[in-house]
């Protein structure tokens, strides 16, 4: 088991309104799984993912990552985010001043791997994701699909146990969206890489090994 989220609850106060986005949500992720979480916009999918990625704290509930109980404010949180988890967001969040290779090398540099080894690993990943012609391009010189593939390569840089993706194709046209989904499935199949993907693309979620729907703050399993 890579990650176990048990009975997560999260409530936001918006003006005088109390919005309970997560109610007793539980999820378990094992190696090699491709899990999709779907739901309506604003239903709390991203919040669920952020809590699992140690970027947000639940009001109640437990989170175990690699057999360690942890919260976003724990001292080890940043090292777990660096070593055990990978992130892909709806927006690529690449650093404009760095080339594709350098962006992918970032997590490795943060973990203390020297620059040449980090760049070598980054290049391997970019080649794996079909970006061998784009190694030295800057984000603004890449297409939307390419930017998201660089972002995916960056998420995989430290060989994380789990990649958390928040609407990874939300900003892409159908052609590029399909390209990214194919890449995710390929990585899941070839490298046995575990993914938890939050999406509103119900069609794409059907190809996942497990899929859940978040409705009224509760996670309902659709496919096992």
């Amino acid at each position: 088991m890579i990650l176990k989220a048990s009975h997560l609850s999260k409530t936001y106060i918006d003006s005088d309104q109390r919005i309970e986005v997560l109610k007793d949500a539980s999820l378990e992720v094992n190696a090699g799984e491709l899990i999709c979480i779907t739901g309506k916009s604003g239903c709390g999918k991203s919040t669920m993912l952020h809590i699992m990625g140690l970027l947000d704290t639940p009001d109640s509930g437990d989170l175990i990552i690699c057999d360690k109980s942890i919260q976003s404010n724990s001292p080890q949180a940043s090292s777990i985010r660096n070593q055990e988890l990978g992130f892909v967001f709806q927006f690529h969040y690449l650093i404009d001043d760095l080339s594709a290779t350098e962006n992918v090398a970032l997590p490795l540099l943060i973990s203390g791997i020297n620059e040449s080894s980090a760049k070598l690993r980054a290049k391997e990943l970019l080649v794996l994701l079909g970006l061998e012609q784009r190694l030295n391009r800057y984000p603004n010189q890449l297409s939307g699909g390419e930017q998201q593939r660089v972002s995916l390569a960056r998420a995989l840089a430290n060989k994380p146990k789990l990649v958390l993706a928040d609407e990874p194709t939300g900003n892409l046209d159908p052609l590029h969206s399909n390209e990214v989904w194919e890449m995710i499935r390929k990585l899941n199949h070839d490298l046995n890489q575990a993914f938890v993907i939050v999406t509103h693309d119900i069609e794409a979620s059907r190809k996942a090994t497990n899929s859940y729907e978040l409705t009224d703050g509760r996670l309902i399993q659709l496919k096992a």
């Binding site: 990625g53 090292s79 985010r81 969040y93 404009d96 943060i110």
Partner: peptide, 16 residues
């Protein structure tokens, strides 16, 4: 801010 957010997400400490 986005750059800071991404670095924090990737595990960089605030002091770094």
């Amino acid at each position: 801010q986005s750059e800071i957010a991404v670095l924090k997400t990737l595990g960089a400490a605030s002091h770094t």
